[in-house]
Design a protein around this nucleic acid. Structure first.
Lengths: 159, 159
DNA sequence: ATAATAAAAGACATAATTATCCTTTATTAT
DNA sequence: ATAATAAAGGATAATTATGTCTTTTATTAT
């Protein structure tokens, strides 16, 4: 006996807290951080393979992360991406801000441009609280914090 | 003296907790609920005007909400959309589920399909907690709850 | 019955995001 | 110096989400 399952909802919409681009950015950064533990540089191919992303796309994203100072890179043989001690203190909030901007931390839950404390949407207070919590969580999450659990195989970056 | 401001981030990404489509859906539903207070039906033009959305687009969305049983509709003269007492007990979670699916409530924060308690991404526990909180908030927010504050002009649906 | 109204349905168009490709520039090893 | 390597940069393509238009169906008032 077998069942066919149907989704009960439409869902051609895009609603993720963090954009796909930014997800790749975070996964790549955490992977580079892990590799940088023993001063090793890692290249685009290796990164793409290990975080399960398209090569060309993560290359583009890494350019942005480089401009934002969140990863370092070196061209040529033995080149690649790496993160120094200073970079290990950057947070997930920094990555999110660099790629997605601040909408995760500040926007109105109903997409109202004029939503504010004075002219609140019906969800204003609830969303304000939740966003603040997310912000705290992301600002508290340093890149370096994840290295050990990743290296030990307690946490994972591939799907 | 004047300044030109530049955004410090890229941001060609999409990262909203709730899709634009779903935002319209919520705003429309709350507006219809408000109108339904005194048994009045409201049409697409009026809805679009009051929630500041494209007419044709909200029409499409209302079809989905109708199929999902979240709003009722009647064709012809004096027709329009309305919500009955039963419908007033539906929650924002129901609308979100009907339009965006359950990704807001369940997805991995880093977009990993295999993320789970057993094979967690580095943000697994934090995201699980936050999503649960959002879910609670949305499941607790009944459509009918918003009617009064909207009618009194304490809360707003237009941008 | 007929005309007018308003939502349902389906096809189509636009815009935004995600993804790819190709050339250029910088660096290293020979 | 030269060839090989690897990231940077720029242009373009594919996909997905958002938005529009036109026809059909159901209902109501005349």
């Amino acid at each position: 006996m077998s069942f066919i399952m149907y989704k009960a909802y439409l869902c051609k919409t895009n609603a993720t807290m963090i954009s796909k681009t930014c997800e790749y950015a975070i996964r790549a950064t955490l992977f580079i951080a892990q590799k940088s533990l023993d001063d090793a540089r890692t290249g685009i191919k290796e990164i793409a393979r290990n975080i399960d992303s398209p090569e060309a796309f993560i290359a583009k994203i890494l350019q942005e992360l480089g401009k934002a100072g969140l990863v370092l890179s070196a061209k040529g043989p033995n080149g690649g991406f790496y993160i120094d001690d200073r970079g290990m203190n950057n947070t997930l909030a920094d990555i999110i801000l660099a790629i997605d901007g601040d909408k995760l931390f500040t926007g109105c839950g109903l997409g109202l441009k004029t939503c504010s404390d004075k002219k609140p949407c019906p969800l204003h207070d609830e969303f304000t609280a939740i966003r603040q919590q997310i912000k705290n969580m992301m600002q508290g999450a340093k890149i370096g914090d994840f290295r050990n659990s990743l290296a030990l195989g307690e946490k994972f970056l591939r799907r």
